[in-house]
Amino acid sequence: LQEVPGPCDHEDLLDGVIFGAKYLGSTQLVSERNPPPSTRMAQAREAMDRVKAPDGETQPMTEVDLFVSTKRVKVLTADSQEAMMDHALQTISYIADIGSVLVLMARRRLARRPASQAHSHRLYKILCHVFHSEDAQLIAQAIGQAFTVAYSQFLRESGVDPNQVGAQQSQGAAGPGHLHNGDLDHFSNSENCREVCIEKRRGEGLGVALVESGWGSLLPTAVIANLLHGGPAERSGALSIGDRLTAINGTSLVGLSLAACQAAVREVKSQTLVTLSIIHCPPVTTAIIRRPHTREQLGFCVEDGIICSLLRGGIAERGGVRVGHRIIEINGHSVVATPHARIIELLTEAHTEVHIKMMPAATYRLLTGQEQPVYL
């Protein structure tokens, strides 16, 4: 049997392993057949928000045992060992772990869209079970390991060499994708989203320099790279470098080119009151790349510390690495004054969990005085 990386002993997974957890509740969602990762992330968050009691309120919960094997996942009451839920492994669509919360998504059956809709497009009902455990990540990894073991068996039974499929998967073509990205959490947290009203004189610019968020960004829009000292934007005290600018006077800038965003900011020059919608973000972002082995391709190219291309669906993209960003740190080591060859060496050697701190290269050049900002 092929060894599959994960927290469990391979043989144990065939028989089944048990994890203690607290069952918080279940909900049901309707989903496309194979939704993209961003949709799955939103679904997991939706399920958690529906089931989890708001902060400060009592959360009803039941002590359970989660039985995980390469055939099934069962939820048993901890005291009587009675099966509350029993799902064949192949009907589990995916799992999500968010801090100490684990969400298990089981496909129920097909539903059809109402006849009123143009295409009779098939939809799945998915049952979402939400659990709490300090070991949520470990349990998710164990279920992920069971997925991989079961999938390898399935391939072998179908006459396919799992090793060959594994090679394709590690290049990000398909397969058991681990998507790790804090951006969605950050962007969907309403506390980070603000409306800022800026007062200024007629004909005065806002006093902001903008850069692109970079290809690979979950939220493609302009980023504040610098603020003119004493300018209206800085005087407001509500903006900082790194903030995403999502709208100006109610007009969305998301998905527009940098030139179009800059033009929209120039257009408000004649006004005395400007409303900006922003998402507060730190100037430096961290990508976390899960790379079990150094033989696995990182999936991006670097030139003089700047990320210049990204493999679609690769582990780097899934970890939040962005084109046009300068690498500031690799696993806690500053690389700002490091020669290219050494950066490549650090990246080649890095595995398990690779933490990469980065910022838009243009922001970096402005902050280090290599370039003069063009204030709008």
Binding site: A44, A140, Q141, Y151, D185
Partner: peptide, 21 residues
């Protein structure tokens, strides 16, 4: 906190219509 998704690779091999009742 970070959100991690682990997709079951069997999903894409499942015949439409199958699933837990």
């Amino acid at each position: 906190s970070a959100l991690t998704i682990t997709v079951n690779p069997m999903e894409k091999h499942e015949e439409p219509g199958r699933g837990e009742e």
